[in-house]
Design a protein around this nucleic acid. Sequence first.
DNA 1: TGTCAACGTAACACGCGGTAACAGAAGCGG
DNA 2: CCGCTTCTGTTACCGCGTGTTACGTTGACA
Lengths: 244, 244
Amino acid sequence: MSIPRLLVVDDDPEMRAMMTQFLQQNGFIALPASSENEIRSHLNTGRIDLILLDVMLGDENGVEICARLRAEQDVPIILVSALSADHQRMAGYEVGADDYIAKPFNPQLLLARVRAVMQRARRSSSLAYRRRIHSFRFDGWLYDGKRDEVHSPEGYLVALSQRETALLKVLLANPHIPLTRDEIVAALDVTGGTDKPEAQGRAIDMLVGRLRSKIEVNPKDPQMLRTERGVGYVFAADVSVQEE
Amino acid sequence: MSIPRLLVVDDDPEMRAMMTQFLQQNGFIALPASSENEIRSHLNTGRIDLILLDVMLGDENGVEICARLRAEQDVPIILVSALSADHQRMAGYEVGADDYIAKPFNPQLLLARVRAVMQRARRSSSLAYRRRIHSFRFDGWLYDGKRDEVHSPEGYLVALSQRETALLKVLLANPHIPLTRDEIVAALDVTGGTDKPEAQGRAIDMLVGRLRSKIEVNPKDPQMLRTERGVGYVFAADVSVQEE
DNA sequence: TGTCAACGTAACACGCGGTAACAGAAGCGG
DNA sequence: CCGCTTCTGTTACCGCGTGTTACGTTGACA
């Protein structure tokens, strides 16, 4: 499956950072935004699968923005607000929001809602779903999101295990950012491996090593999957998204 | 559009009466039901636009019923429950419910949710209103629901057993989402095989294997019926509904 | 240069899932 | 009633992916 691209709209920089970070850790691509203009620019330039929209946006109003977007586009929207009063909720639904979450929220619940809404959207049209599948290019390599396959620069098909593919996807979604082992574990648990709650020993190191042995020219001197001593791992390749 | 027809499923007669009455007063046609059998009889005899399904149904379980219905039909479902714990919510969403309401609820909120879900269903193409979906196309293959037959991309008629066909239908109804063995078992028990209550050993694995051997080009490297280690099985083909 | 923690990885262990072989069960024709 | 066939669940075996452990290596820092 392709990696969902979410737009996180909140005028509080701290809140925005926290949410994007959390979503990134869980395998999503999360893009920050803070105004209606930014939302529109994102919608015009790239694919967006779902918008998390704060209701209180300084001088702008999330509910009204939601109404305007709904009038034009079919992108799923989840409203987020500190006001959980019923009438607020209703205002959200009446305006066409797909869901409504009250702040502060349980992160796991947020994930469940996001998935549920996206699942609904997917079910509603396999055509729209097909358009969402995309591929990545990185340093001559190609990850084909359609078939979940990886091709070397020479065109050979490289067989990666499920878990290795999952790791690669997490890296592709977070290029140039150092990921701690815990972050990777969190992201992989979503992508679907065995779910041990915590402390998986050195499983991540092994996984990284195995992936390196398959996609690095010289695994002893990794160029793409670099290690940041004391921190974690960084994907240092030039990553570009390949629209299908 | 005609007047929406809702199905109110609750085992408490008083609650049932209250809800149907309230919904009737607000312009809906509300039909009472108290068991899975009654739901199915309604779905078979007339149009139902949305089901309000109580989670606690005496000896039956709303969540499981929801899973089974979802496997076959695309009717919108709102789960209703006295338990509002987060994990309960998630169980509902995971199973494909369109929304989840905690009892006791604000009547106005109930109305808002019902309208929101139906609005969504309408927006998501007319799929929800095709009560009887007969045929599916998937990766060149054709499942003819009218004759319960499966045709290969080359046009050959492939003979599937009753149980294999049932599994295929469950998969077609849930493309791209991982189904656990338990979910598949639940769905199949309805679709009509032998009904052993629980724990069917590895029957599902066998069934999947046999279906693979018949519809996969290379059963050793399945492209459509993929396995998600530690989770279950995913139908990864491009599925499109074929209007009759 | 010595020390120690972090990292790489070989070797092992374990559990999930594929599947061959077998066993009932149900249908069918004689 | 008896074989024969077909369908389907059970059991057992095995391969493979993945986590664990152990040990060697590297690199930062005093």
